[in-house]
Design a protein around this nucleic acid. Structure first.
Length: 684
RNA sequence: GGCGAGAUAGCUCAGCUGGCUAGAGCAUACGGUUCAUACCCGUAGUGUCGAGGGUUCAAGUCCCCCUCUCGCUACCA
């Protein structure tokens, strides 16, 4: 009984480095949904992959001394290996360097250009270097970059723009008419209030500052910039053709039922992507779910600290299914989840070893002990002789499918799993209520004992079958130990729909011989022991990281912050236009002594400084609050641009600029002289 | 600064359109049990439901205001 198609995608991972567990979470989440839908009778197509173009990769490859292609081949292989190690059942792994993808990106670009949605920008004097973006005159706010508010400068590069504003009204209407489109709904407001209602800026969709990308075929100095290249993977991967010759697979699968992405790239998936699709005349995806992050509880993950948790580590310590269980269970629907070794061990012992593992183990042991391993239902009619506890167990058994299905419809995967574990807990309780060991002492109750064990075995099989999408390996192991196939969802669904407790209570084949030697499904772990091993492992890593070059560490720290790759958190500095010495000489840099420094209460970023430069003092505001406490800066000597035009910020005057260095993540460090210099010393 | 979300047991959170003695899981304590991976089952808790006002016969549940936290956005000369 097919229920129709279901096309689900994850974001494609950026191939600049190895993803950590926070990044791997998404594919497991997607996989659990895909597996559930598949078992539930849908014709599922599940796509994931890698995003492999861009300047950052070009640079990384250069550093490593290999071609960009060789570089991404290696990383993409690694990413795919991680997906496989997590036992994910994707149907297609697309790479943006795949031929068919690149060809379609070119065709799409051309099509959009020819129909006037993409235009060559008028870029006279309107380039914002930090944002790497061109702007048209009309887009400027007070003559400044509308994105960052900084000065825009003349630039020689041309760029193509996409006319976002043209489709804005249509998109607003769509979002309002389809409240389920953006999930969770709180994200919808952010998109509306911050971007759509204030008015959309046109998006720059090409670059000339690097070459590692899909060339614009009619203007090959340009490469297609990230979003048009990356987002379109969702349609090119299933056979979209911009010239109207899309394949059957595309016709069947599109529009996607669910794009599963990180919450940081919601904007691109709920604004730019739908607008691209509108321009192409294609239907919009049904739903975009921006899931929260899985964060490390004990301090920020960073390679230099050596405490980054990788999927490989967790699998090594706990096994694949325990890792899947953990990330799925620990992640709430709207808030970020936390991962620590403590929590991991806690879940492992409490839920997996105690509740589930022990239940299976004790049940099989009793079947062996009392009946030589044969599990037989001695009651012919389902309720014949059944007691209240049997009826209660049967009720839970029958309903669990619909409870789980309901949660899955709402994408509440963690809650769905909790429903399944409620069944296991109910089964444990059933053992205490029926006391099989007491029944065993009375020969006349032998049939009752057999029936009790049968009901238990049946409940375990129902639970294991429901568990399969989340923990496939465990479901299989239980099925093997119970020596019976997992039950189809169609059967469970029918029992639930008809509320047929009799049928639901007789799904396990009566007379089955279970395994003689029950295997421990999940071994209890000792926290102290685990921590000892973990610390040893991290110590080794830290040493290795310390040995790496500074540039390398700084670079890698960026990867550890939870970027999935389809974002652009890192800063790619495009070379600025050459200047003359005279240009340089216009800037007056001097050493400034920090006399006082305080926070500006209402601002998240600003610190207010009293700086002595030569014989006079001046007030300067600087956005470095996140990186320094005011007291640690007092007395420091810093580099100041003193002849910058004073400007009012946050209601205060700022007379000059304190210079800092910024890494790829925007972490700042103020520039100070290498040895003592008096306040006012010229920097030249 | 703008927009939005939230503040409920030690911890993580549920509590829909206001209605009976405010719930779940984990952790804690006590009791029971022994088939099982010292496991499972039961019981007990404590909560000024962030502070203060208001509407109502009745308010975690609606309104106002305050404090704090978080998200997005702006500010980072």
């Amino acid at each position: 009984m097919k229920k129709g198609k279901y096309y689900i995608t994850t974001a494609i991972a950026y191939t600049s480095g190895t993803p950590h567990i926070g990044n791997s979470y998404e594919i497991v989440l997607a996989d659990s949904i895909a597996r559930f839908k598949r078992k539930d009778g849908y014709d599922v197509f599940f796509q994931t992959g890698t995003d492999e173009h861009g300047q950052k990769i070009e640079l990384k490859a250069q550093e490593t001394g290999v071609t960009p292609k060789a570089y991404v081949d290696k990383v993409a292989g690694e990413i795919q290996r991680i997906c496989d190690s997590l036992d994910t059942s994707y149907d297609k792994f697309i790479r943006t360097t795949d031929d068919f993808h690149e060809k379609q990106v070119q065709k799409i670009f051309k099509k959009l250009y020819e129909q006037g949605d993409i235009y060559k920008g008028s870029y006279e004097g309107l380039y914002c270097t930090p944002c790497e973006s061109f702007w048209t005159e009309s887009q400027l706010v007070d003559g400044k970059c509308p994105d960052c508010g900084r000065e825009v400068k003349p630039a020689k590069e041309e760029a193509y723009f996409f006319k976002m504003s043209k489709y804005a009204d249509k998109l607003i209407a769509h979002i309002n008419e389809h409240p389920e489109f953006i999930q969770p709904v709180s994200r919808k407001n952010e998109m509306m209030n911050n971007f759509l209602l204030p008015g959309l800026q046109d998006l720059c969709v090409s670059r000339t500052s690097f070459t590692w990308g899909v060339p614009v075929d009619f203007d090959n100095r340009h490469v297609v910039y990230v979003w048009l290249d990356a987002l379109t993977n969702y349609i090119t991967g299933i056979g979209y053709d911009a010239e109207g010759k899309s394949g059957d697979q595309y016709k069947k699968l599109w529009p996607a039922d669910l794009h599963l992405i990180g919450k940081d790239i919601i904007r691109f998936h709920t604004i730019y992507w739908p607008i691209f699709l509108m321009a192409l005349g294609e239907p919009l995806p049904k739903q975009v779910f921006g899931h929260p992050w899985l964060l490390q509880g004990d301090g920020k993950m960073s390679k230099s600290k050596g405490n980054v948790i990788y999927a490989d580590d967790l699998i090594h310590f706990f096994g694949v299914d325990a890792v899947r269980y953990f990330v799925l269970h620990e992640m709430p629907f709207e808030n970020d989840g936390v991962i620590t070794w403590d929590l991991m061990v806690e879940r492992m012992n409490s839920d997996l070893a105690n509740t589930l593992g022990n239940l299976v183990n004790r049940t099989i042991s009793m079947s062996n002990k009392y009946f030589g391993g044969v599990v037989e239902n001695k009651n012919t009619g389902v309720d014949a002789g059944a007691e209240d506890v049997d009826a209660d167990l049967a009720g839970v058994l029958t309903d669990t499918y619909s409870r789980v299905a309901k949660k899955m419809d709402e994408l509440r995967v963690a809650d769905a799993i909790t429903e399944i574990f409620a069944l296991f807990k109910r089964s444990n309780k059933y053992i205490d209520e029926t006391m099989p060991w007491a029944l065993a002492k009375d020969e006349s109750k032998k049939d009752r004992l057999a029936t009790v064990l049968y009901h238990l075995s049946n409940a375990i099989m129902v639970g294991a079958s429901l568990l399969e999408p989340y923990m496939p390996e465990t479901a299989k192991r239980i099925s093997e130990q119970m020596n019976a196939p997992l039950i189809d969802f169609s059967v469970l669904e029918k029992c639930a729909a008809d509320h047929d407790t009799a049928a639901a209570s007789a799904l396990y084949p009566s007379g089955t011989q279970v395994t003689q030697m029950p295997e421990i499904l999940f071994a209890r772990q000792d926290l102290a022991e685990v921590m000892e091993k973990v610390e040893a492992m991290f110590a080794g890593r830290k040493q290795a990281a310390g040995a790496a070059e500074d540039a390398e560490s700084a670079d890698q720290a960026g990867e550890a912050d939870g970027n999935t790759g389809m974002d652009e958190k890192f800063v790619e500095l495009a070379p600025k236009a050459e200047i003359t010495y005279d240009d340089f000489d216009k800037c007056q840099f001097q050493v400034g002594l920090v006399l006082s420094c305080e926070e500006i209460p209402k601002s998240k970023k600003l610190l207010k400084f009293e700086i002595q430069v030569g014989g006079s003092t001046r007030q300067i505001l600087s956005g470095i609050k996140q990186y320094y406490k005011p007291e640690e800066l007092i007395g420091k000597r810093v580099m100041v641009l003193v002849n910058l035009k004073p400007r009012e910020i946050a209601g205060q005057m700022s007379e000059g600029m304190i210079l800092s260095a910024a890494d790829e993540d925007g972490n700042l460090a103020v520039m100070t002289p290498e040895r003592f210099m008096p306040a006012g010393a010229e920097i030249c």
